[in-house]
Simulated scan of single mutants.
Amino acid sequence: MNHTNTQEEANRKAKPVAPKVKELIERTKSVILATVDAEGTPNSSYAPFVQVDNTLYILVSFMAKHTKNLADGRKTSVMFIEDESATKQIYARERLTIEAATSQIERDSEIWNTVVTKLKETHGKVVDVIAEMQDFILIALQPVKGSYVNGFGSAYFVDENLEILEHRNDVNHQSK
């Protein structure tokens, strides 16, 4: 079988898979963060998170480069991605990428206390220790828009409510 026939067969088999955005978020304990500093230098990192309503929250230290970028409200992207050990095809890992607006939550406010309690329930007693450290701040990540991919030919636009807007693959991948 030549490459062209293989590609045509793959295109026929590449049908959208039902989106499971909320399930991906629920089975993930941390998010991958992409931020930029004042000079535009990118930084990638991760942080454990919790979701309250439609907002993601992370408790992060100013010892990490990404915290200043987040606190300054610079452009931020957040990614949830299927574990490599669980994926059937490394090129088609399930993933959700979100552009997010950031804001710092005031320490000891009602939302601070609610979120820190949920962080402790989700991630353990270590949260009690780090929440008391003054270099740790609570950041809200409010989704703006994004994309969700769960296989070849199965990519979707996502809105600020993490709901699927539409299938985004109106053109199949092209081979040489």
Rank of each mutant, 00 (worst) to 15 (best):
Ile81Phe: 09
Ile81Lys: 06
Glu82Leu: 01
Glu82Arg: 00
Glu82Asn: 02
Asp83Arg: 05
Ser85Asp: 15
Ser85Phe: 11
Ala86Phe: 03
Ala86Gly: 04
Thr87Ser: 09
Lys88Gln: 10
Lys88Trp: 05
Gln89Tyr: 10
Ile90Lys: 07
Tyr91Leu: 14
Ala92Asp: 07
Ala92Thr: 07
Arg93Pro: 06
Glu94Thr: 12
Arg95Asn: 03
Leu96Cys: 07
Thr97Ala: 12
Thr97Asn: 11
Ile98His: 02
Ile98Cys: 00
Glu99Asp: 13
Ala100Lys: 10
Ala100Asp: 14
Thr102Trp: 08
Thr102His: 07
Glu106Thr: 10
Glu106His: 04
Arg107Leu: 13
Asp108Trp: 06
Glu110Lys: 09
Ile111Asn: 08
Trp112Met: 10
Thr114Asp: 09
Thr114His: 03
Val115Leu: 00
Thr117Phe: 05
Lys118Gln: 08
Lys120Asp: 08
Lys120Pro: 02
Lys120Glu: 14
Glu121Trp: 02
Glu121Ala: 02
Thr122Ala: 02
His123Gln: 02
Gly124Ala: 05
Lys125Arg: 09
Lys125His: 08
Val126Asn: 08
Asp128Tyr: 11
Asp128Gln: 12
Val129Gly: 13
Val129Ile: 15
Ile130Gly: 08
Ala131Gln: 14
Glu132Ala: 15
Met133Ala: 15
Met133Leu: 15
Asp135Ser: 03
Phe136Tyr: 06
Leu138His: 01
Leu138Val: 04
Leu138Pro: 02
Ile139Leu: 06
Ala140His: 02
Leu141Pro: 03
Gln142Gly: 08
Gln142Phe: 06
Pro143His: 06
Val144Arg: 11
Val144Ser: 13
Val144Ala: 13
Gly146Lys: 00
Ser147Lys: 05
Asn150Glu: 06
Gly151Glu: 04
Phe152Lys: 04
